[in-house]
Amino acid sequence: MDVSSLFRSRARVAGAAVCAAALAAAVTSCSATEKLTTGLQVKRSVEKLGDKPAATVLVQADASQQEAHDFLRAARGGSAGGSLQEQARLLSTGELTFAVGSEEEKTALADLSKSERLNVAAALNFGGKDTVAAKSVAEQLYVRVNLRSVAHHFESAQLDAGRADRLVALADRLPATLGSAKDALRGKWVRVDPDAFDAFVAAAQQMREAAQAPAPSEGARAGQEREKSPAPGPRQEFARATALGSALAGQSEREFLDGLQKTLAEHATFAKAGEHDGAEHVTASMPGRETARDLSRALTALGIRLDPSTVPDERITAELEIRRGQLTGMTLDAGQFLPPQRDAEPPSLPLEFDFGGGDAIPTLAPDGARTLQPQDLLAAVVYGALGTGRL
């Protein structure tokens, strides 16, 4: 064989190998650069939420009632529970909105230190007026409960529309000395002491029992039936109100935003997912347990309780939406947080998060809010019972 031909052949092979290696290095470098650039873009898009004095997050499930039911049942290890259908309905229709804002109206969130307290506000609704709302402003807690909405949406409240109307109408008959109770019954903002939540639950329970009392025209039979069926303990509707208020008092919404920002900045990897509907889309891969720990603070009011210790030690994915350099949306499947199912894939429950700069719920203290004491509610019950024989 001609030695020169062999040399030229080997040279071509070597040259091709060098070119292939160079091409592979270029592709790898390009991919790494793109990932780095995308990661910086996401980091800046999250930080941009802090460029204004307030930020808002809206959370809801994009699921049918059946899909929500399947998810909740799997999350409870297959245990259905008597109120699971109602909770599934609430989860599939509920919308949680919360906002954080600086106490100085013109100070950007990013300019505040971690030690500085934020004003926070949250509201839970089901497509209409807010059912429950709460605010924590300058270390004062304010709540607002719409009794008619509670009666309409919460079957577990055992409070029909007629009795809710009577409770609201009771406000017109209360004396001026019970002004705070009048406001509370009318669904206005009142200031409460978070340390008195247990007493508020007990007072609300007595109000509910009084509202359940049968009218004289309903006859003795109704009274006998109620004697056989004692009223249950404090129900879900007030538990949600107090849970929401307790969460705000503990600044959990700030912790949620801080935790989400930390997870995206320190633990997530990113890949571009194209542009559509006027927004850039990025797929984020995050550690499941850390993400569950952050999200659990925001999802409790929707009826989703995530226990990070039971979440598979795997990564989950989410799709981020970025508009004009700011993070405006995130969609993830909560089914990724469930442990493996015995005979099937974990049920899906898409969750949508909408982020915005500004206060969809004002984080300022409500004007004219009076201080409500648990005994004010009890006095209202007594006054209503003495005046009419029923509520």
Results as ranks from 00 to 15, higher is better:
Ser149Arg: 13
Ile361Pro: 07
Asp376Met: 10
Pro350Tyr: 07
Ala110Met: 07
Gln373Arg: 12
Ser115Gly: 07
Glu47Lys: 09
Gln158Cys: 04
Ala369Ser: 09
Pro214Leu: 07
Glu105Asn: 11
Asp51Trp: 05
Arg163Thr: 02
Leu391Val: 09
Lys135Pro: 05
Phe270Trp: 08
Trp189Arg: 09
Ala134Ile: 09
Gln212His: 08
Glu253Ala: 11
Thr310Leu: 13
Ser348Glu: 09
Gly389Thr: 04
Arg305Trp: 04
Leu264Met: 15
Glu47Pro: 01
Phe337Trp: 14
Lys48Val: 00
Ala298Thr: 05
Ala108Glu: 09
Phe197Pro: 02
Ile304Val: 15
Asp376Ser: 07
Pro308Trp: 14
Gln261Leu: 11
Trp189Asp: 04
Lys262Gln: 13
Glu95Pro: 03
Thr317Ala: 12
Ile322Leu: 02
Ala318Glu: 08
Lys35Gly: 02
Arg12Gln: 05
Ala20Glu: 01
Ala68Met: 04
Gln326Asn: 03
Met1Pro: 06
Phe154Thr: 05
Ser5Met: 10
Ser9Cys: 06
Lys272Ile: 01
Glu67Asn: 07
Gln375Asp: 08
Gly162Cys: 11
Asp198Ile: 09
Leu58Ile: 03
Ser31Arg: 14
Arg240Gln: 13
Phe197Gly: 09
Ala171Asp: 08
Asp111Trp: 03
Gly357Tyr: 00
Arg305Asn: 02
Arg370Gly: 08
Thr37Leu: 11
Ala271Gly: 10
Arg226Ile: 00
Arg117Ile: 12
Glu225Pro: 01
Pro287Tyr: 02
Ala215Arg: 15
Lys106Val: 13
Ser102Asn: 14
Thr291Ile: 12
Glu139Thr: 14
Ala181Trp: 03
Thr328Tyr: 08
Arg173Cys: 05
Glu227Tyr: 01
Pro347Ile: 07
Glu67Pro: 03
Ser5Leu: 14
Pro287Asn: 01
Leu351Val: 07
Pro194His: 08
Ala249Ile: 01
Thr56Ser: 14
Asp354Gly: 02
Pro53Leu: 10
Tyr383Asn: 06
Ala88Phe: 04
Ala380Trp: 01
Ser217Ala: 10
Gly368Ile: 02
Gly15Gln: 07
Pro194Ile: 05
Ala380Gly: 01
Phe353Ile: 05
Pro287Thr: 01
Ala11Leu: 14
Ala75Arg: 06
Leu338Pro: 10
Arg191Asp: 04
Gly81His: 12
Lys52Gln: 11
Pro53His: 07
Lys182Trp: 05
Gly358Pro: 03
Arg148Ala: 14
Gly389Tyr: 01
Lys228Ala: 12
Arg117Trp: 10
Leu378Val: 11
Glu275Leu: 00
